[in-house]
Simulated assay, not measured.
Amino acid sequence: MQSFHFVIANVFAETHFGGNQLAVFTDARGLSDLAMQSIAKQMNLSETTFVLPARDKVNAAKIRIFTPQAELPFAGHPTVGTAAVLGQRGLGAGQFVLEEAIGDIRVDVELRGDRIAARFQIDRPIDSPGFTPTNALVADLLTLAEADIAAAWFASAGVPFCVVQLAGREAVDRAVLDRNAWNAKRKDLWAPNFLLFAGKPTSERLYARMFAPALGVDEDPATGAAAVALVGSLAKRVVAGDGRLAITIDQGVKMGRPSVIEASVDVRAGQTSNMRVGGLTVILGEGSLAVPSN
C-alpha cells in the first residue's frame, strides 16, 4: 500500500461550508490513470485534482482533473482551488502557472488568513457550432414552458455547455433536467452539459445552476469552466466594438451551497481575450488515502 496526502477545500465559498467541494492530492506521483479515476469516484465530489511535477521547470505544477466518471482537460473550480491549496502550502501569494491538458493556465493567488483568493486567466477562443438549440427542445429537456426560455446557445472554453438564459430566477430554480428526454436527445446536442442563468449581464448579478450528468455530476454548486463559457459568449452578444464585460455569478443557492464567482473578459475587434475567473477558497482539512501499489 502507498499513502497519498489530500486536502479538502471549498471553492468559490463566501461561507465556511458553502462553495464547491474539491479534493486535491498534493503529490500524485506513482498513481496510474486508473487509480486516479478510481480515487475520484471514491471521493465522489464534482472534481478531484492530482498534482504532479511540471513538465517545464518554470511552472508550478502539472494538474490532472477528474470527475467521478471522466478526466477533464480543464475545469475552473479545480484550477482555482488547486492554486489556492498550493499557495497556502508553500508557493505563497503571487502569480504562477499550472499545466493542464488544455494548456498552461496562469493563476493569481492572494492569501487572506483561512481564506485564499485565487483567479485564473485563459485566452483561448470561445468555441461554438454554427447552430443553436431550439427553445422548444431546451424547454422539454429542462421541464419548463417554452415561454420561460429567453435564449439558448452552445459555448465552450474547453468544456462544452448549452447556455440557457431564463426569464427569471424562479424559472432557474424550477428547472429539472428530464433524464429520459436528455438520454434520448443527447446525441443531437453539441453540448450535453447545461448552464442556466437569469439576469441582465450589463446591469445585474446573475443567478445560475449547472447540470452535467454526462460527467457524473447531477448538479454542480460552482462551475468555473461554465463561467468562462458564459462570460465569453455573453461578451460577443452584449459588448459592441471594444470593451470589457464583468459579471458576478451566484450559483449553488438552490443546493444549499451558495457560491460566488467573479468573471470578466476583454473584447477587441469582436474577439474575446483575457478571460478571468476567480473567487475565495476555504481550506477545511486534510488527510491521507491508502492505495494499493501498482
Rank of each mutant, 00 (worst) to 15 (best):
H5M: 08
A9E: 03
F17G: 07
L22H: 04
A23W: 02
V24F: 02
F25C: 08
A28F: 01
G30C: 12
S32C: 05
S32A: 08
S38N: 15
S46H: 07
T48E: 03
V51P: 00
L52N: 01
A54T: 06
R55S: 12
D56R: 11
N59G: 00
A60F: 00
I63F: 06
I65L: 05
A70Y: 03
L72M: 13
G76L: 07
P78K: 04
V80M: 03
V85I: 05
A93W: 03
Q95L: 11
Q95C: 13
F96P: 00
A101I: 14
G103W: 08
G103H: 03
G103N: 09
D104R: 13
I105H: 04
R112N: 14
R112S: 13
I116L: 02
A118I: 07
A118R: 00
Q121G: 09
P125K: 08
I126F: 02
D127N: 11
S128V: 06
P129N: 09
T132L: 09
P133K: 05
T134F: 02
T134I: 01
A136R: 13
V138E: 06
A139Y: 10
L142A: 10
T143V: 08
L144A: 06
A147R: 13
I149H: 09
A151D: 11
V159K: 01
P160F: 07
P160A: 09
A167R: 15
G168P: 04
A171R: 07
A175K: 06
D178S: 15
A181K: 13
W182Y: 09
R186S: 10
K187R: 14
D188V: 09
A191L: 01
L195F: 10
F197N: 04
E204C: 10
L206Y: 08
L206T: 11
L206P: 07
R209L: 12
M210D: 00
F211R: 12
A214H: 15
G216R: 07
G216P: 06
V217I: 15
V217E: 11
A229F: 05
V231C: 04
V231H: 01
G232R: 01
A240Y: 06
A240F: 04
G241P: 00
I247K: 02
D250F: 05
V253M: 12
P258C: 10
S259P: 07
V265I: 11
D266Y: 01
R268H: 09
R268D: 02
T272G: 12
S273H: 14
G279H: 11
T281L: 00
L284M: 11
S288N: 11
A290S: 13
V291K: 05
